[in-house]
Design a protein around this nucleic acid. Structure first.
Lengths: 207, 207
DNA sequence: TGTTTTTGGGACATTGATGTCTCACAATGA
DNA sequence: TCATTGTGAGACATCAATGTCCCAAAAACA
């Protein structure tokens, strides 16, 4: 969850890696607009054109290239940015505190809130593969494994299946809820509760 | 489920539409190899190259073009073929007979068996959109809605959520199971039972 | 206001996927 | 065996996405 902030291996190369530091307010805003549009568009179509993304960001294609020289750079930056957004949302859920079931409910709510970022990051395994192939995976994938295992130990979560499977289901159900909301099948405000309900009890009538 | 076999609107154009009829055994075999490879490859990467597909089918790229003049033709044919495969598998489950819960279990088992075809058809909504935009949607999407509604009426499935949502979950859980098996997270033989278990009861310990 | 920064659009060259065609070889079937 | 059918490899032309530049206009800033 928490990014390793230890200055263990500071950029081996002295290249100017820190464009997201403090740029003139305008540049920062443009940069964020592009990254947001990229995550949103690519979440729905991973083969989207740079022109598509530029249009969604309400920015000229040349401006996009000015910020991100090539497609891969944009991809990488979008991965990093999306990680930060997700990380922040998940951190606020404090999943290592309180009863597992309640922690999980907070986590799901947090995940639904950043649904498009999750869809971008995990909708296509290739995205993450390419990224972590280029860089050290200094971004720890947000993991709910410890929470799940804690819940299993306390007899709250099904101990008959692996924690990894439950985590897969967590992503799957959350993603499905986000998708259903995107296509109007679920009302925005009811997504989290429906996802929680189904995730916990499945589809059979409780009785 | 069952394709409308009524000769309502027979091909308005008299073009030679029926290549899959009876071709010399060899051609049929090659054709099926290409369609199978296309579904399998495209399920994992919808941006896959025709060269990729030809390679997976162990066929030259020119042979592929000989069978399917352009990419869209291949896409359409693969959709039709995958529908037939899924349809056949689902039909064998006889989901309109017997107790809903057992029917659903048969359905899930059938779906897991044709996981890659489902992943191809439903992994990217665009695939089906483009297809049904070109042709009359004379292919009825395999629907479990009636089964789900029957189950809800009998008090077996959760009546608090919509049948559409439950169907979305059905696809999502099945797909996740197929994916988990593909990456070795679940043993092949345990996929169906795990999917059924989670689909029915969610992830909480039953008690 | 004037100056600097940022932007959008257009004009390229480049690249990779696609689609077409030809030809020699292999497989099938009589 | 021979004739037909089906195939793979390669040479092309085409096309769309990409990446690079430049320049005038708009926006931000002092």
């Amino acid at each position: 969850m928490s990014a390793t902030r230890q200055p263990v291996s500071e950029e081996p190369e002295p290249d100017p890696r820190k464009p997201e530091a403090r740029e003139s307010g305008t540049r920062g805003r443009t940069r964020r607009a592009i990254l947001g549009a990229a995550a949103s568009v690519l979440a729905r179509d991973r083969a989207a054109t740079l022109a598509d993304i530029a249009e969604a960001a309400q920015v000229g294609r040349s401006t996009l290239h000015r910020y991100f020289p090539d497609r891969q750079e944009l991809l990488n930056a979008t991965v990093v940015d999306s990680f930060h957004v997700v990380e922040q949302s998940v951190a606020a859920a404090a999943i290592d505190q309180g009863p597992p079931l309640e922690a999980m409910r907070r986590l799901i709510t947090a995940m639904v809130d950043v649904g498009d970022r999750l869809a971008f990051l995990f909708g296509d395994p290739r995205v993450l593969e390419e990224f972590s192939a280029c860089f050290e995976p200094d971004l720890s994938v947000p993991t709910a494994i410890s929470l799940i295992e804690r819940g299993q130990a306390e007899g709250v979560f099904d101990p008959q299946v692996s924690a990894e499977w439950i985590q897969q289901m967590l992503y799957a159900v959350t993603y499905t809820g986000w998708e259903a909301a995107a296509k109007g099948l679920l009302p925005r405000h009811g997504v989290a509760s429906t996802v929680i309900r189904t995730f916990e009890n499945g589809v059979t009538a409780q009785g």
